[in-house]
Nucleic acid binder design. Sequence first.
DNA 1: CTAGGGTTAG
Length: 702
Amino acid sequence: MRRSISLIPQRVSPIIRFSFPQRCVPFTTIQKLILPEDNYESTTSQHYAASSPCFLLLSKCTNIDSLRKAHGLLTGNGLMDDLSCATKLVSLYGSIGYTKDARLVFDQIPKPDFYSCKVMLGCYVLNKESLEVINFYGFEWKHGYNDIVFSKALKACTELQDLENGEKIHCQIFKVASPDNIVLTGLLDMYAKCGDVKSAHRVFEELTLRNVVSWTSMIAGYVKNDLQREGLCLFNRMREESVSGNEVTYGVLVTACTKLGALHQGKWFHGCLIKSGIELSSCLVTSLLDMYVKCGDINNARRVFSEHSHVDLVMWTAMIVGLTHNGRANEALSLFQRMKGVGIKANCVTIASVLPGCGLVGNLELGRSIHGLSIKVGLWDTNVANALVHMYAKCCQNRDARYVFEMESEKDLVAWNSIISGFSQNGSVHEALFLFHLMNSESSVTPNGVTVASLFSACASLGSLAIGSSLHAYSLKLGFLASSSVHVGTALLDFYAKCGDAESARAVFDTIEEKNTITWSAMIGGYGKQGDTKGSVELFEEMLKREQKPTESTFTSILSACSHTGMVDEGKKYFSSMYKDYNFTPSTKHYTCMIDMLARAGELEQALDVIEKMPIQPDVRCFAAFLHGCGMHSRFDLGEVVIKKMLDLHPDDASYYVLVCNLYASDGRWSQAKEVRNLMKQRGLSKIAGHSMMESEFSAIG
DNA sequence: CTAGGGTTAG
């Protein structure tokens, strides 16, 4: 059928016929809007007479200008009383993002029907205005419900994390309808995302028909709420019921492995994916990449990264974050530079991910330039600001940290924690404590476990038993330890251990339910610090028995414990076990322990042998340990051999000269010590004397 | 109706 302007007078258009000429609307305007003859059919609504000229006019409007023009035209001619026109207008405004205009039109409809209400709701849904969806649903909905309306309303609750309204909708669903599978899956998803896994599971169990989507949704719900093991169990059940997973399912499972640190299991899922021939979407590739890199399997991460043809921003970011988490911040930073070189533009997430790396390696220059960049291109949100605060603090730029912090209009919990933890770590312990005081007195933000964990480590470096133990009492009162969080517990344990109170440390250790390697290592180190090598060794053996995997730093703790009490044989055993059984490459720290251990025990030839044969460059601590041993055992002959070598290697570093001075002084050779001091002066070197601190006043533990 | 990367803690 030919539909053109010539048909209009013959169709149902008394209004047009009478009103347009009367109001002197230039006919050409409408002509221009309506004229194209193509695609008329495709823009018709099933609900309204396609022939309505108003509708015809509107169906040609594709941008805000033409729509506003048409809107004015219709209003001016009193055509807005027509329900179909008004509804179409609502839908069009909504489709191009003008929900406020849509609502204005909707509110002028004298008697909106079910369809027009649905269209209005659809506008909010389309533009992800979840709050409006809920408001509209709650207050204006008078026209009955159907599954689609329920689904949309539930989705809005999910996005808003609005469990309360979600529960109300749940009640309504069963009052008025027998919902279909899609509504029920939406309901399950709402509960899961709002953190109510129990209700989600109840809905899931009551489902008569479980498909991939409902299984996946339930598994994802578990994983989102940190119940990875339950998620994996459910996957087994799913397989028993012969439902096979799709790419979404595997994505969720891989994420579960990442959270568990279960590299082996994750690899197995990767294998399943390859075998099943499921195509790897970017989401899935990112999950795999994230899993490998966060589990420390950098090689496989790199393989996934380089084998994927379109590496997008999210993948780059995942890789940067993973490297940083694995103590490879420098590689992360160079990856960030490479990403810019490839022409991929960072967003807020990337910025917030790179900054911790800058703080970790103390790359203030890059940190500052990122700060500048994010201001210049407007990449700014709370997370970026918080990351900047922490970066500046880590780089000892307290003023800058404080500046960015003060500039934040709404300081959230993370903002306070960022500055407090940053100051705690850079040695500005009193500033950290002062900010904690401000946080309590001048903000509405309540501290959490992260806050006190930071402060515990601050107290540890201050050696302040008094402040630390009152903070312990405070934490008990506020319940930060009741949930037996590993983080807080380990920080507290470490605090007592570093203050030399191994007994209290052990008491805390025993209350931590889910101990991890860091917990064990801290306790092993705690015994060592107190000279209780037996305690260290026993705990280390127990750790192995419980199948807790030691890390490099666990070996540092145990080796240093052995060195304190001269347990040379045990030390040698653990050192060789470290690289033979656990495949760890010994670091300078490990070598230092060995040198210290041998030197204290008087095995100075062996110690010298270690220095000469170690595959990495010995640092100042290695030499210090050796020279200390030389002093202890009056082997100045060996000492002088090393001194010469050492000063040749590091002629400009004052700390090495100090070692030499100390050695001469320990033998009472003051004149030679003075000579070295003079040599330092000549070369323009100076060193601030180091000091250690320990509070002598002890108070009861709260 | 289900799926990817982020800031603070040991």
